[in-house]
Design a protein around this nucleic acid. Sequence first.
DNA 1: CCGATTATTGAAACGGTTTTCATTAAAAGA
DNA 2: TCTTTTAATGAAAACCGTTTCAATAATCGG
Lengths: 180, 180
Amino acid sequence: MLKLEDMAKKIEEFKNEKEIFLEHIQKAGLRRTAQRDLILEIFLRTEEHLTSEDLYWLVQKEDPSVGHTTVYRTLKLLTEAGLAREVRFGDNKTYYEHHYNHEHHDHIICTECGKVVEFFSPEIESMQDAVAHKFGFIPTHHSLRLWGVCEDCQHKANESHPTMASGAQPRVRVKTIAGN
Amino acid sequence: MLKLEDMAKKIEEFKNEKEIFLEHIQKAGLRRTAQRDLILEIFLRTEEHLTSEDLYWLVQKEDPSVGHTTVYRTLKLLTEAGLAREVRFGDNKTYYEHHYNHEHHDHIICTECGKVVEFFSPEIESMQDAVAHKFGFIPTHHSLRLWGVCEDCQHKANESHPTMASGAQPRVRVKTIAGN
DNA sequence: CCGATTATTGAAACGGTTTTCATTAAAAGA
DNA sequence: TCTTTTAATGAAAACCGTTTCAATAATCGG
Ligand SMILES: [Mn+2]
Ligand SMILES: [Mn+2]
Ligand SMILES: [Zn+2]
Ligand SMILES: [Zn+2]
C-alpha cells in the first residue's frame, strides 16, 4: 500500500472517530468546544499508550491556554464514548490507548524491563463471559493483565549478574499478531 | 464442626502465618518489631478486603503511636511474604486480602452496587500461562477482573426507575464456591 | 551489658488522579 | 442580535499511595 493511501485511510478513520465523538456529545447533552476538538485531534494522532500528562504536554504545544484538568476530563469523555480505553501497567500511572477501530486486547508486562505486549485470546474472552453468567452477572467489561519475564530479560539474567532489576525503564509497546 | 474447634483451627493457622512472616523477615535480613507483630496480628483477625487506611484505624485502637506509613509498609511486606495480596476494584483504592491458606481467586465486581464475588477458573488460569509462554514470557503473576451487573441489580433496574447508579456504595464480599 | 551498626519508624513531602468552585462561554430562545 | 441558561474551563485543593529523611531502636560483636 502506498504511503498516500495510508494517510488517506487514517484521515477517514479520524473522521469517523470525530463523528462518534460529536454524536456522543449530542446524546449526552454536552457541548462542543475548541478544547475538546483539539484534544481529540492530538489524541488521534498518537498511537502510543499515553498518560493524561503526556497528552497535556502535546496539547500545550498547540494551545498553551488548555489546562491539565480539561485534558484529563476529555480523556474520560473519550473513554465513555468508546474512543479510548484506560490501561494500567502497575507503575501507578493511568495510560490511555485508542479503542475505536482497534481490536480489543489485553497486555503482558515484563516485570524486568517494563515491555508491554498486546494479545487477544478469544478462548479466554469467552470463558470470562461464561464465568460471569455462571454467577448471574451480565458482563460489561474486564481487565486482564499478565506479568512475567520477557525473552530478552531471561537471556540478560543468564549473561551479566548486575541485573538492572526494576528502575524507571521506559515502557515499550510491541505490536503483535492477535490470536492464541 | 464445633465452634471451639473452629477457633482452635484459626489459632493454628495464625501460628503458621506468623511463622512464615518471621521466616521471611529473617531471610531478608529484616528485623522483628512490636509494630509489625501488632499489624500482622490485626490483619489476621480481619477476613475482609481492607485498605491500608482501614487497617491503620484498627491498629490505632490498640496502639495509637503506630503511623500510617508503618501499616502501609507492613502490608507491602506481608504481600512479599505471600501472606497478603493487593486487589483493586476500580474505586482508586488498594485493598488487601489474605493470601496464605486462601485459594487464589479473581473477582467479579458489580458496576451498580459494588458487590464483589470471588471465583476461580482453572481453565482460564492455564490459558493465561499458555498465552504468556506463547509470547516467550515466563509468567509470574496476573490480575483478572470482570465487571458486570449482578442479579440483584438486574432486578432493581426492572422495578424502579430511579436507579441509584454508581454512588459510594459499600463493597460486599460474597463467598462463593470455587470452580468454573 | 555496652557501643556500633544499620534497619525501622513516623512526619512530612511528593506525585498522579480526582474534585471543588468561581469564572467563562456554548447553546437555545426571544 | 441580545439574553438567559447551564455546561465547560482552569486553578487550586483534596485525596491516596509512595518516598524521603532525621530520629529511634533492633541486632550483633566485644
Ligand atoms: Mn494496548
Ligand atoms: Mn478476594
Ligand atoms: Zn523484559
Ligand atoms: Zn449489584
